[in-house]
Amino acid sequence: MIDVNTAGEVWVFAEQHEGKIADTPLELMSKGRELADKLGVKLAAVLLGDDVSPLAARLGHLGADKVYLAEHELLEHYQTNTYAKVIDGLIRRHKPQIVLYGATPCGRDLAPRIASSIKAGLTADCTDLQIGNHEVKKTGKVYENLLFQIRPAFGGNIIATIINYDRWPQMATVRDGVMPMPEPDTSRKAEVVKETVHLAAADLPLEILGQHMQARKVNLKASRVIVAGGAGVGSKDNFRLIYDLAHCLGAAPGATRAAVDLGFIDRDHQVGQTGTTVRPSLYIAVGISGAIQHQAGMSESKKIIAINNDPDAPIFDVAHYKIVGDLNEVAPMMIKSIKEKV
């Protein structure tokens, strides 16, 4: 069990495969930086692998003050036991106050194993992280500068803010696509801390016989926010607006069949009866009339924003926020508003 250490660092597990850092931990660097600055502590990336030191520089550019580097031939491919053993040791040695992992298939396999061995809490699948205070009602005791771990649960029907005040580190897995990727600053340099690794073949209880990874395709079903464009967007060029709005929200771009048929975007993005059925937390329908076949694929979304210049468009029947107006004006206003607030 690890005690509360308010001087501890903020850590991000820099998951890498085949010498390439995964997107989610890279996105986490911006949030990690923000948290570390608020707490007045260092942001460190934890990098494991075999011969991965060249990746440390990039982590520095993206905001890390430090990179804990653990290299060993048995760390070449991700395996639960070896990775958990090494990170468990690092946490016990350096006592960080916060440890963040991408909620990737690998992060969700690894983080709970570590949480169990160090007997710490772990919040799953966060969509936001903040620093705040918590008062324990019974005793009136106030814990300051805790990590608020904000996550949907109950099939996405509630949003819970989870904290851990008496047993640390505060650990969370964080969803992909909910935090913006930081802009690299090539003048920043991280201090590289080389860690010695003690592993033996017995630490590898699995043998990987084969692996087939899919190229990253749009995964509408797994997206928390979808920005979908319809025929009303007008042209393939103008579809840029949909990508831009999606990008600043960490959202996936979607489309109607009409937009796909007009060649604005690939068929993988089609939502509806003959496309994908989605139920994201937020669905933004831009220039979409709301045909029944389209609604069949999106009406279960938790929140729907519709932008259409026809006040009688059927999409407004299922929308929670109705914006009657020209999408060419409204979409840029939304982008501006989101960029200034986030």
Partner: peptide
């Protein structure tokens, strides 16, 4: 025995 505690819960169902 539970390190995680709920600080707040909000419904998102309209």
């Amino acid at each position: 025995g539970s390190p995680t505690k709920v600080h707040r819960i909000m419904s998102v169902v309209l």
